[in-house]
């Protein structure tokens, strides 16, 4: 992050409480930058870090991380050249093919992603996609249910990072594979909603290669004074656009070589 923290400790705690309240009560709030227009990306990660510490103190378990804003188009739109990251806890995990409750979310959308499970620790800076692949235990398909706690899913980078990069729920499943057995750049994916194709793409849509997104995530973690321990579950970013879901919908993501992963949604 080429920025530094400008918010006072009190302001960080205030904003963290505001985000935590919005996440827990599933209410939309104004963008944080409306009150703090000078907020920097470093401030946003300070809020996200505080949010993570609060959840961990409440007994949530950190299971991994996710990369967001991983397509060139989205990064250009947000005026950034690196993805955003967010943390994942056990409370966000949902089993494959389960019924996912939507009443505790604001305006959920689904994306399909290649997820990595690490077999070795990774530490930036200077982490490369080759380092990521060497440290990868296996890959699997995943559905991420993102949710912005800001009005109308409208946000800026500073607000969205403070809101844990819109992390809400995730489902890993399908078929686990060794990364070495696959070309992770050219995996095709079809996202179906209620039996109709809703979005399509190939994994190179994520920064040219999903491992590239994980490498950038590890380097951002280094700036935050964190590393990626073995066993971490890491989602590399949406291959397709995010598709809105409502109660009664069923989604399934079909991946080349990785099988499929699905979920249904209830009120």
């Amino acid at each position: 992050m080429s920025t530094s923290i400008t918010l006072s400790r009190e302001d960080v705690v205030r904003l963290t409480e505001r985000v935590e309240g919005a996440q827990k009560r599933a209410v939309a709030i104004p963008k944080l930058t409306e009150e703090y227009p000078g907020m920097t990306l470093a401030d946003s990660y300070a809020v996200q870090n505080e949010l993570r510490q609060r959840y961990l103190a409440q007994g949530h378990r950190l299971v991994g991380w996710k990369a967001g804003l991983t397509s060139k188009a989205k990064m250009r739109q947000m005026g950034v050249d690196v993805p955003s990251i967010g943390f994942l806890t056990d409370r966000m995990a949902r089993p494959e093919n389960s019924a996912i409750t939507l009443s505790d979310l604001v305006h959920p959308r689904v994306e399909c992603e290649v997820a990595f499970v690490m077999k070795a620790d990774l530490k930036g800076p200077g982490c490369t996609s080759a380092d990521v692949l060497a440290a990868t235990g296996y890959v699997l398909p995943a559905i991420e249910i993102i949710d912005s706690r800001f009005h109308g899913f409208k946000f800026d980078l500073e607000s969205v990072v403070a809101d844990n990069s819109s992390s809400a729920r995730f489902v890993g499943g399908g078929r686990a594979r060794y990364a070495d057995d696959l070309d992770l750049r050219t995996l095709g994916v079809v996202l179906e909603k209620n039996g109709e194709i809703a979005a399509m793409g190939a994994s190179a849509a994520v920064l040219g290669h999903p491992a590239e997104a994980i490498a950038m995530l590890v380097n951002i973690l280094a700036e935050l004074g964190e590393s990626l321990p073995a066993g971490s579950f890491v989602m590399s970013g949406g291959i397709t656009e995010a598709i809105p879901v409502k109660a009664g919908d069923h989604v399934i993501a079909r991946f080349q070589e990785l099988g499929s992963v699905g979920a249904r949604f209830v009120a």
Binding site: V189, V190, A205
Partner: peptide, 27 residues
């Protein structure tokens, strides 16, 4: 080859310009 789910990556001058998948064509 899984022609339905095989991914398609198009690079223009070394940069990813488009991605797709077999299913885009009539399923």
């Amino acid at each position: 080859l899984d022609i339905t789910l095989a991914g398609m990556v198009v690079e223009k001058n070394g940069e990813v310009a488009a991605t797709g998948v077999g299913a885009a064509v009539q399923g």
